[in-house]
Nucleic acid binder design. Sequence first.
RNA 1: GCGCAGGUGGCAGAGCGGUCAAUUGCACGAGACUGUAAAUCUCGCGCCUUCGGGCUACGGGGGUUCGAAUCCCUCCCUGCGCA
Length: 340
Amino acid sequence: MLKQPLVIIAGPNASGKSELAVKLAKKFNGEIVSADSRQVYKGMDIGTGKVSGKWLRVQHSVSNIFVRHRVLNKRVFVYKNVAHYCIDFVSPKRRFTVTEYQKCAAGAIADIHARGKVPFLVGGTGFYIKAVVDATTFPTVPPQIKLRKKLEKKTTAQLATLLKQKDPRRWRGIDRKNRRRLIRALEIIYVTRKPVPKHDSATPYHLLYLGVRPEDDAVLKMRIAKRLRQRLQSGMVAEVRQLHKKGLSWRRLDELGLEYRYVAQYIRGKCTRKALGVTLEKEIWQYARRQITWFRKEKRIRLVHSEKEAEKQVAVFLSKINTGILQNGGLAAVKYNRVV
RNA sequence: GCGCAGGUGGCAGAGCGGUCAAUUGCACGAGACUGUAAAUCUCGCGCCUUCGGGCUACGGGGGUUCGAAUCCCUCCCUGCGCA
């Protein structure tokens, strides 16, 4: 079977991924699959920089002979007339996980392919992107709350020793000071009664992996600062208040990180408005650094510095792909109808 | 001008005769990442190094001592109180 194309657009916070993606998707008959661990949540809009799309009913009228489509009358998140998937669909009260994301994204991609369109995987969550792009297999052990509580009582050193006994191979590779990882590894071992399986992964797609990142750190910093100011001015605090009112505990908000963590602290009177701005700007920058570290490691990435360059890359990539779909112009016509 | 309290690495802030290139936190830098990933975690952080060590350092200068960031004198600066 032929591999289907997948265009990835990755980059740190505030690098302009979303807008670029929409432009490219429009131009190349694409649809967007978001790869953002926070934009999946409903009600988290301003703080995540979610595009201001709407949930619309969509009729996919596919006129493509290769496709036996199945999606009819589905609701789709649409922004600037481009469909977005894996976004704005889960309750923030719940803890969403990579595997769930993986299923959602893989499904969306298959669906987009089935309709003869090009999927654009766009986001800043490296781990999520990797899970999809390499179809990583995760051990099928869902989080065991009770077990975790028990393990949580042990010291980090104890956990490490335990893991060393049960699974030396995993122990060798793991970050031995990271309790969260140790606990998960042990959890897998206890449930499956076997060592943690080796990771296997293989790309099921033809990839074009694009990276966006401002040439200069100073530019990125400025963009972060500017964006933050806008968020704070346009209801960021109210959004967090609203989430809390709807039942998100402070603890949960803290876990959600960045804006959600620090605005919640501000609301609880733990810092002044001014201090909030300062810390957040710093924290977001640090986060961007972590993202960059992740993507730096990804050797398949091609850095693009402008919209033009990105367009060119996509054009060349798609023209090389020999699926027939793109050449014969059998592109699906899609209509989005407003849902009340 | 007098009295008191201080001046330590980018900042905050320990140390108060040797084991101090100097606890710690923050900032900064690098990195990890097998169902929380905006999370979680690690390492580095005066200068040089053949990684043994070497050099310059705790406001400036001078002293005491085998030895000072730590004690004394003096100068400069800062904060508080009195003028």
